[in-house]
């Protein structure tokens, strides 16, 4: 394969910063979850790029773990978000200012 790894790393950097930007500026909690998925995928892309240089494919292995953790995180976060929505009738992060009700 003749693809320069620098493109993969550059795309990974871009996706990471984009996810960070989404997390910081969006107010809807679901947008923030999507931003977190972007960041996790940027990390995964980095794993894969370095794994292509490694005969033992260790990066790809940890990429699988990271995908599983991302799925678990999405499930729990959406369950919590569901409860938040039931209570506040909104997913605007600016209105979520109480831990106890």
């Amino acid at each position: 394969m003749s693809i320069d790894p620098v493109y993969g790393l550059g795309l990974s950097a871009f996706l990471f910063s984009m996810g960070l930007l989404v997390i910081i500026i969006k107010r809807n909690a679901i947008f923030v979850l999507i931003g977190i998925e972007l960041i996790l995928n940027a990390a995964n892309l980095n794993f894969v790029v370095f794994s292509s240089a490694d005969p033992a494919n260790t990066g790809q292995l940890f990429g699988v773990f990271s995908v599983v953790l991302a799925a678990a995180e999405a499930a729990i976060a959406l369950a919590i978000l569901l409860n938040i929505f039931k209570f506040y009738k909104s997913t605007d992060l600016h209105q979520l200012n109480r831990l106890k009700y």
């Binding site: 394969m1 693809i3 790894p5 993969g8 909690a29 679901i30 979850l33 999507i34 998925e37 995928n41 995964n44 894969v48 790029v49 794994s51 292509s52 494919n57 990066g59 790809q60 990429g63 699988v64 995908v67 599983v68 991302a70 799925a71 999405a74 499930a75 959406l78 978000l81 569901l82 929505f85 997913t91």
Partner: peptide, 30 residues
């Protein structure tokens, strides 16, 4: 293209299949 075919399949199954369906349901409910 980066020679990680196994992870590509996992990505399609778990992410494009599972996580997105979860997200879509979350959006529809909230």
């Amino acid at each position: 293209l980066f020679d990680a075919t196994y992870l590509a399949v996992v990505q399609l199954l778990v992410y494009a299949g599972g996580v997105i369906v979860l997200l879509a349901f979350g959006i529809m409910i909230t």
